[in-house]
Design a protein around this nucleic acid. Structure first.
Lengths: 170, 170
DNA sequence: CCATGTGAAGATCTTCACAGCG
DNA sequence: CGCTGTGAAGATCTTCACATGG
């Protein structure tokens, strides 16, 4: 596993140890036992409904991406504020009016959101999501989103990642 | 700046201090002076040519995304191995045969690459990029890419980011 | 008095080294 | 002897607290 992931073996052992002792000293980890334990720890098998806001380039790519379902994520609700997009479908998911978002999120009890709108509207969208009960947000807008401590936000900024890489060129 | 970014103010001061003393004690930072210094540190204004491989959902989204040029990145070369895509254009950039990549990269002295191919071919693409002189790679394929120490790789896996968010739901 | 700059302290993350056990 | 599990050491990152100087 260390070789495959590039992660130090003692790091892997330590990470496992936080959740229990899955192996036998002197012997190794049982293939089946370990995978079962890890699946449970990572809640694999469980399905997560997700709401996505902003059907632009990145939003559309995420909607079409088939890799999420394998990992247990299902983009169930999609919103935009563009009237020319509302009502149309992308990969069989209907784009709804963002005005309806808060209610829809509550009705369907969705607590994971993805923001792929321009920076200007990202904060407002985030507040609406949080108002609808979302507690975890993946944000692609290049802006820091203010949020209460009980909400967690991950920020992916591809340009920033490129800039970090440029740094290492020297 | 602390309020806007959500970063502790002493962290910001310390970060600045690694590159010099940009402010005056008791007074503050001069707006112009600080921005100029930071631009230089971050090499803003400089343009970076980038090669992208894999014109699928994410690759296409990145090609169409207008935000890169503002940050100094220009996707100059695009490659794929799909004959139905080679020769066509996305946003005025011609998709080229991946077989030509190594030579093109050398000719144009490009040292930043973006990988948006399926996991199966990512390692091979990375080796070809490195062979062509690329020293920084942004990888979207869900796989750890082996690479020599002089090459730096950033891995963006959107499903993993979602999984991390799920963790915080509990 | 105020805001920067920075050693020191504190927190966190990673690696080492070896005890424990089959 | 080999591989796991883990305390301790080491490295790194973040925050504190205050000296410094306008």
């Amino acid at each position: 596993m260390s070789e495959i992931t590039g992660i130090n073996s003692s790091q892997i052992r330590k990470d496992f140890s936080y959740f229990g002792a899955f192996g036998k000293r002197g012997v190794g980890y049982p293939l089946f036992g370990l995978t079962e334990q890890l699946k449970e720890v990572m809640r694999a098998g469980q399905k997560w409904d997700v709401a996505l806001v902003g059907v632009g380039n990145i939003g559309t790519a995420l909607l079409r991406y088939k890799g999420f379902s394998k990992r247990g994520f299902n983009i169930k609700l999609v919103f935009d504020n563009d009237v020319s997009k509302i009502g149309t479908k992308v990969d069989n998911i209907k784009i709804q009016d963002i005005q309806k978002m808060e209610k829809c999120l509550k009705d369907q009890k969705i607590n994971i959101g993805i923001i792929t709108v321009p920076a200007e509207s990202a904060q407002e969208v985030a507040y609406k999501m949080i108002g609808g009960g979302v507690r975890s947000i993946l944000n692609f807008a290049p802006i820091n989103i203010k949020h209460p401590p009980e909400v967690s936000i991950k920020h992916i900024d591809i340009a920033i990642e490129l800039e970090k890489l440029v740094y290492y060129l020297f």
